[in-house]
Amino acid sequence: METRPKGRGQLGRPRGFDAEEALERAMRVFWEQGYEGASLTDLTAAMGITRTSMYAAFGNKEDLFRKALERYAEGPASYVARALREPTARAVATAFLNGSVRATTQPDCPAGCLGVQASLAAGEAGRTTRDALVAWRNEGTEHLRLRLQRAVDEGDLPADADPGALARYLMTVANGIAVQASSGATRDDLQRVADMALGGWPAA
């Protein structure tokens, strides 16, 4: 009969918790409280694990936040990628702003946008995370710019349209929607804002 050496049994032992579920809960804490507002106690309590388990599975708080932001981009904020695949520039803008309204006013989620909420009131200790969020938002703006530049090239937007300015306009409106949502604005109110913002969209 084969005997297992002492200590070997723990090498393949499962963590004892659902890492995906724990990350989902951490994402919601960051979403609701921001990066600096979310303490390790808040995070581990929501995740249902100890600090030791958190460090082992996700790294430090900054590492955990980056993983939570990735999850947010692939989940609640996935409307951005879907909007970019729309066939016309106007459809892209409409899907982007409508998606922002829906994502920031979900009844079963924190109000607002994690990418905006987490960077508010960030002091020196949160500078790295704040910079990461700036880069994340700028990347989104650049994806919009490239898609709108394609629309100009294809004649879907006027030749004199400025893709960079239009992309920044959409991102600014979306960020404003997120801030208003976190302040209690209703979905209907914010949808009217989105509709008004699209009222002056340039025609081909």
Results as ranks from 00 to 15, higher is better:
2 E>P: 02
5 P>I: 02
7 G>H: 08
12 G>D: 10
22 A>L: 04
23 L>I: 03
24 E>Q: 15
34 G>C: 02
34 G>V: 01
37 G>L: 07
46 A>I: 03
54 M>S: 13
56 A>D: 09
62 E>Y: 07
63 D>I: 12
64 L>E: 01
69 L>C: 02
71 R>L: 15
72 Y>T: 05
73 A>L: 15
75 G>V: 11
76 P>D: 15
78 S>Y: 01
86 E>T: 12
90 R>W: 12
93 A>W: 00
95 A>L: 08
100 S>E: 05
100 S>R: 06
101 V>W: 00
102 R>D: 14
103 A>C: 07
105 T>W: 01
107 P>R: 08
113 C>M: 07
114 L>K: 04
114 L>D: 09
115 G>M: 09
118 A>M: 09
123 G>R: 07
124 E>Q: 04
128 T>P: 08
128 T>C: 06
128 T>K: 07
129 T>G: 06
129 T>W: 03
130 R>N: 06
134 V>M: 04
134 V>P: 00
137 R>N: 11
148 L>R: 03
149 Q>A: 14
152 V>T: 05
160 D>Y: 12
172 T>P: 02
176 G>I: 04
180 Q>R: 08
182 S>N: 11
184 G>L: 11
196 M>W: 00
197 A>R: 01
198 L>M: 07
200 G>N: 14
200 G>T: 15
201 W>I: 09
203 A>E: 08
